[in-house]
Simulated scan of single mutants.
Amino acid sequence: MAKFQADNQQSTGVEIKNAIMTGVSWMLPFIIAGAVLMGIARIGASFYGIDNIWDASYEQADTVIRLLHKFDGFGGLALSLMLPVVAGYISFALANKPGLAPGMIGGLLAGNLGTGFLGALAAGFVAGYIVRALNRYIKLPKSLASAGPIFILPVGGTLLTCVVMAFFIGSPLAALNHSMESWLMSMSGTNRILLAAVIGGMVGFDLGGPVNKAAVTTAMALLASGIFDPNTAAQVAIIIPPIGIGVATLIWSSRFPLSLREAGKASTLMGLIGVSEGAIPFALSNPRLIIINVIGSAVGAAMAVGLGSINHAPISGFYGWLAVEKWPVYVLSIACGSAIITFGSLLIFRGESESQELKKEVKTPKFKASR
């Protein structure tokens, strides 16, 4: 069979962190490409007074509008690869090439099950450790050793990962997602500022994960019923974390690890066009940022709703700000929430110590065939 050998021994905590950072680093280009394409499409559509260019009805529109609709679809296609890629490369970091297919397929399944980003993280770790276990405990004669990494490990790892995701992890996470949606729906008649703060905090919590998706989905459902406050809160909160953390890296870049300084520029751009995932690498690098994201998003959302801003469309990017009722208040709320995250992130990222820690990262395990 085959052996996975790491160049150095590392603790489980360091191994998990390295795996997550590997997955995120491979995921970022897909997010950036998708977000920029969607931004081009939606900014272009705004010149024609269109705020829902993703709607299928524009498939039969005039040439330019149809082209913008296609661009938005291309961007969405790129973003749809986010979950498989992050799960696949987490698994790759743990089990090298044999873990790549089980991880990607597990991440794709996580998306289909409605478990979001957290489900994809779980799929990556499940796949990586399953492939490791298979490699350790399945023994083959030397004549069949080459079949291990290209047949037994990918096929067996994929099957077991899908079973674990479908029957053990997927259902609880999906149920949690639906229960949060029901809870938010039940709060629609309570204090509007409190509701806005709750939705804002949920959106800022996991940046595109199940908690975020539950809040945004519920806000859109209420929007269809003519209830605008939840949508206003969600659209404000979506962009506050990436803008806040991006501005922080521009103000004082030396406080952030080298690997995240360039990501800060992308984060700012992604925030402006309405993609919260730009802040994910920073939250994974320092989980204390999650608390700050929740606070900043909640404050910004509550402020926008409390001061009377109304966003009638499910658009968070800057190209939709001028269409919001009381848009100066709306923009001020975004600025205030982002400022909280900027200040907080500069407090928790300490520069040199974290940079040194990242420099000590252990290389990913190498796959070597035994003699």
Score class of each variant (00 low, 15 high):
Lys3Gly: 02
Ala266Cys: 06
Glu15Cys: 03
Ala127Asp: 03
Ile295Leu: 15
Trp54Asn: 14
Trp327Arg: 08
Ala87Thr: 13
Tyr319Arg: 08
Ile169Gly: 05
Ser182Lys: 14
Ile65Tyr: 01
Asp7Val: 04
Ile292His: 04
Val163Arg: 05
Leu284Ser: 14
Leu260Lys: 03
Asn286Gln: 15
Met220Glu: 15
Ala339Pro: 13
Pro172Arg: 10
Gly107Asp: 09
Ala224Glu: 15
Ala224Phe: 13
Thr12Val: 08
Ala78Asn: 12
Gly201Trp: 00
Ala233Tyr: 13
Leu94Val: 00
Ile227Ser: 10
Ile31Tyr: 09
Ile43Pro: 02
Ile310Val: 15
Val329Gly: 02
Ala145Leu: 02
Pro149Ser: 13
Met220Gln: 14
Thr63Trp: 11
Ile20Thr: 05
Pro257Ile: 01
Met180Phe: 15
Glu354Met: 15
Gly204Thr: 00
Phe228Leu: 04
Gly75Gln: 10
Glu59Pro: 00
Ile348Lys: 01
Thr364Cys: 01
Ala35His: 04
Gly201Thr: 06
Ala266Trp: 06
Gly344Trp: 08
Leu118His: 08
Leu68Phe: 06
Ala19Glu: 04
Leu207His: 05
Ala339Met: 15
Ala33Cys: 13
Lys139Cys: 05
Gly73Cys: 04
Gly300Lys: 10
Ser355Phe: 04
Asn231Arg: 06
Ala233Trp: 12
Ser253Ala: 14
Ala110Ser: 12
Met21Tyr: 04
Arg132Lys: 14
Gly308Lys: 08
Ile193Lys: 07
Ile20Val: 14
Val329Tyr: 03
Tyr48Arg: 09
Arg261Met: 11
Leu153Ile: 02
Ile50Arg: 04
Leu207Tyr: 06
Leu68Gly: 07
Ala2Thr: 11
Ile334Asn: 06
Asp7Leu: 07
Asn286Trp: 02
Ala279His: 03
Ala283Cys: 15
Met38Ala: 12
Asn191Val: 10
Ser297Lys: 09
Ile105Pro: 01
His69Thr: 05
Gly148Asn: 07
Gly271Leu: 05
Ile138Pro: 11
His312Trp: 11
Leu79Phe: 15
Ala33Phe: 11
Glu352Asn: 14
Trp54Pro: 00
Pro287Gln: 07
Ser182Glu: 14
Ala304Glu: 05
Asn135Gly: 15
Asn293Ser: 09
Phe74Ser: 03
Ser253Leu: 06
Val126Arg: 07
Val324Asn: 11
Thr161Asp: 04
Ser11Phe: 00
Leu134His: 08
Ile169Tyr: 11
Phe151Ser: 14
Ser254Thr: 10
Ala233Phe: 12
Ile341Ser: 14
His312Val: 13
